[in-house]
């Protein structure tokens, strides 16, 4: 029996980085906001997954953060996309477009459509 949940998990993990960058392109955010949105999109199984990823993206220079005072409690990290991140995201976007096109084609095309080529 092929493990569906495993395949799904793999897919999600592959997408996660892309989605975080997309979210941050739209709007800078706290880690908790990112978690909230990813959870709604069912992209996140455990919250802890996000933190190593954020640290790595920051290390690669794709993200940056600044400390923001909150109304209560200590300051929190407020993440935003860097110009490098912007560029990286565009590349990813292009790659995604190709993948999406391929997948769509595979889904809609019939076997006879291939024979002509």
């Amino acid at each position: 029996m092929v493990d569906v949940s495993n395949a799904k998990s793999q897919m999600r993990k592959g997408m996660l980085e892309f989605c975080i960058l997309l979210l941050l392109k739209r709007q800078s955010a706290y880690a908790s906001d990112i978690i909230q949105q990813l959870k709604e999109a069912e992209l996140l199984v455990v919250e802890g997954t996000l933190y190593p990823l954020l640290t790595r993206l920051k290390k690669d220079g794709l993200l940056a953060y600044e400390w923001q005072e909150s109304t209560q409690g200590p300051p929190r990290k407020y993440y935003r996309l860097t110009p490098d991140g912007q560029q990286f995201l565009e590349e990813l976007d292009r790659a995604w477009g190709e993948i999406a096109r391929t997948v769509t084609l595979l889904k809609i095309l019939q076997p006879q459509d291939f024979q002509g080529q």
Partner: peptide, 29 residues
């Protein structure tokens, strides 16, 4: 909710910590 350390691991070849804690038993998924 936050998950075990090994559950958080993103698939990233070569960056897996060599710490012995990585031997923690994980579930099949």
């Amino acid at each position: 909710r936050i998950g075990r350390p090994d559950e958080m691991e993103s698939p990233e070849p070569g960056s897996s910590p060599k710490d012995e804690r990585s031997e923690c038993q994980t579930d099949a998924e």
